[in-house]
C-alpha cells in the first residue's frame, strides 16, 4: 500500500459524472489520487485516469477550451480512459458528430438492433489480453452503461457481446481504455484498477 502512495496518480478533472467514484475506488485500494485539470500536474503524474460519463460533443468542446485535448495526446505515462474517456480516445464518435482525440483510429458507433439501448448492467468480458487483466478470469462480469461502442480492433484487449461483439477494452502503447466502469464493477473492477496502478 505504501508503494502506491508514493506514486502520483491523477484523475483528469472535467465535467464528467464519475470523477468522484473513480477517486473513491482508488482510495479503497490505498491510492490517494489527485483530481486536477492542471497541465503540469497531469504531465508529471505516474498514472493518469481519464474518466467519463456524459455526451461526446460537449465533452470534447470542454476539453478543447482547456487545451486538455492536446495535452492528453502527448502523454507518455500509462493513461486509462474509462467509458466516455475510452470513446474520446478514438478518431470520431457518431454521438454529436464529434471529432475525437484519434489515438485509436476507429469510429465510435451507436448500438443498433433488437435490444434496449443504453446497454446497462453487468455483462461478461472475454479474450482478455495483457497486464491490465492479470488475474482476471475469462467471462468475468463488469458493469456497463453506454449507448455507443467501439468495434473489434487490432488494439482490442477484451471483448463483450451485446447485439454484436464489441471492444470492452483496447490498448495501444501507453494508452489503455475500458468501456465498462471498473470503479463500479465489484472485486473484479478493483483488481483491474489495481493492475493499472501496478503497470
Amino acid at each position: 500500500m505504501l508503494i502506491f502512495k508514493k506514486m502520483k496518480t491523477v484523475i483528469i478533472d472535467y465535467n464528467a459524472g464519475n470523477v468522484q467514484s473513480v477517486y473513491y475506488a482508488l482510495q479503497r485500494i490505498g491510492v490517494e489520487a489527485e483530481i486536477t485539470d492542471n497541465h503540469n500536474k497531469i504531465k508529471t503524474a505516474d498514472k493518469v485516469i481519464f474518466p467519463g460519463v456524459g455526451e461526446a460533443g460537449s465533452t470534447m468542446h470542454y476539453l478543447k477550451t482547456r487545451k486538455l485535448d492536446t495535452l492528453i495526446k502527448e502523454l507518455e505515462q500509462p493513461v486509462m480512459g474509462i467509458c466516455l474517456g475510452m470513446q474520446l480516445l478514438c478518431n470520431y464518435s457518431e454521438e454529436g458528430d464529434t471529432a475525437c482525440l484519434n489515438i485509436f483510429p476507429n469510429t465510435v458507433k451507436l448500438f443498433k438492433g433488437n435490444e434496449k439501448v443504453p446497454h446497462v448492467g453487468w455483462n461478461s468480458i472475454a479474450n482478455l489480453n495483457g497486464d491490465l487483466f492479470k488475474g482476471v478470469p475469462e467471462n468475468s462480469y463488469v458493469y456497463f452503461v453506454h449507448s455507443y461502442y467501439v468495434e473489434i480492433l487490432d488494439d482490442t484487449i477484451a471483448t463483450c457481446n451485446y447485439m454484436q461483439n464489441f471492444s470492452a477494452a483496447i490498448q495501444k502503447d501507453n494508452f489503455y481504455a475500458v468501456q465498462f466502469h471498473p470503479e463500479k464493477s465489484g472485486e473484479i473492477g478493483t483488481l483491474i484498477l489495481q493492475n493499472f496502478i501496478n503497470l
Binding site: 435490444e115 446497454h119 448492467g121 453487468w122 455483462n123 461478461s124 472475454a126 479474450n127 475469462e138 467471462n139 462480469y141 456497463f144 473489434i152 482490442t156 471483448t159 457481446n161 451485446y162 461483439n165
Partner: peptide, 16 residues
C-alpha cells in the same frame, strides 16, 4: 479476427 470470434463465449447481459 477468426481466433477472437472462436474464443468468444457468447453470454448475455444479466438480469439485475
Amino acid at each position: 479476427t477468426l481466433l477472437l470470434y472462436k474464443l468468444f463465449t457468447k453470454k448475455m447481459l444479466t438480469k439485475r
